[in-house]
Design a protein around this nucleic acid. Sequence first.
DNA 1: CTGATTTTTTAACGAAGTTTGCACAAAAAA
DNA 2: TTTTTTGTGCAAACTTCGTTAAAAAATCAG
Lengths: 230, 230
Amino acid sequence: MMDTKILVIEDEIALSDAIKTHFESEGYDVKVAFDGPEGITFFKMYDPDIIILDITLPKKDGWQVCREIRENSSKPIIITSIKGDVFDKVLGLELGADDYMVKPIDNKELSARVKAVLRRCQSQTPQADDEVIRFENIEVSLQKYELKLRGRSVDIPPKELELLYFLASNYNRVFTRDQLLDKVWGFDYLGDSRTVDVHIKRLREKLEGTSEKWVIKTVWGVGYKFELLG
Amino acid sequence: MMDTKILVIEDEIALSDAIKTHFESEGYDVKVAFDGPEGITFFKMYDPDIIILDITLPKKDGWQVCREIRENSSKPIIITSIKGDVFDKVLGLELGADDYMVKPIDNKELSARVKAVLRRCQSQTPQADDEVIRFENIEVSLQKYELKLRGRSVDIPPKELELLYFLASNYNRVFTRDQLLDKVWGFDYLGDSRTVDVHIKRLREKLEGTSEKWVIKTVWGVGYKFELLG
DNA sequence: CTGATTTTTTAACGAAGTTTGCACAAAAAA
DNA sequence: TTTTTTGTGCAAACTTCGTTAAAAAATCAG
């Protein structure tokens, strides 16, 4: 298998080091650039398969770098943004970014996203996308923003879908309300943790009686989990 | 229960008073410093969980204070600045501030930000692998918050689970009630050591007859241990 | 842009579950 | 026996949870 090459454009050395070490341990080939112009140069020289690009960079910011890379190439780009940054999803997508993450970066999550993005870009059929979670009688697609129960499409608001998707893709694991706010609502979210309860309630209404094999369970004093039953 | 300590470094007395009153009414412990050096001193003495730091301060400005705090600690810092101040977000982020607010300060928003920042800092940690403790017929997972006896999932309240987890992961070692209160309930817990007895009792009820190979044993005059037999 | 509709968030309150303090009984050492 | 330590039952205090309703925010259609 040919080594997949990752270019990391990131000025915070501690972070870029961590990412480099992590991906190298997973068998990728990694190169790091520390500012915008260096990023562009390395991109041309190194010809990476995927770029992980920070928004706040010295000399030339991430948006600009993204734009320039897109002039010559359609290689996938994952954008990372610091908390508190003015960060525009839509702008990112218009510039041709393929995914984005808000710092702090969790290596495991980054890995998953890199894999997902590569898979997406390598498979020619754009419809064939693996970001669908399936268990008995349930199917959650983040890309189509669609929930299917017993094969039937069910209307569901976006936040509920995202919450369900997150819980289901980390099944059996408990998350506190605060963790869910971070992961589903986002790092910068300001708001009450009781919000989670209400969404869970509405999810349970929709899912009620769909299957005996799984359930959204309350772990008293801790939080919630999507549990697969034996 | 809410024992979170906030250090407010702010020279404008009307404002610091308002903040103090507000957070105390929400159950936080608040201390106020009125200039830079005092802020540093209080930081060392008081060991707060979070710092709310004004930029314009007598004697030593907020940037400098931020820098000095960051030399020794990664405790979260929220910076406040007067509207119209020369105010550099990026500089702030580089110095390690965690959030910003522009005056005038709205108490509710400040509360929300404090909560959000604390949440962020707390959910940094728990990505750890699932540490499951296993002995014959027993399985304790802190990640799933689950206790399995003879392969069956058994309902158990969080404190009991944590106590069991702690004892089992330090099997054969005796802990006094006070040590258990420290380790399981938290070092700042104030309460009766008989509480431990009660939890031990209920644990024993649940675990009774599960296995001949281990037991929660009383060490008379000392405390308890999870003992492996054989 | 405006008003209607949907979604999300907040607030409140009762219900359910947990933890704790206390009193006293039982057990172990002295 | 006396003293000390531990076990247990119970009720009170406390936390957390589920649900509802209403406010606020976002989205959509015209």
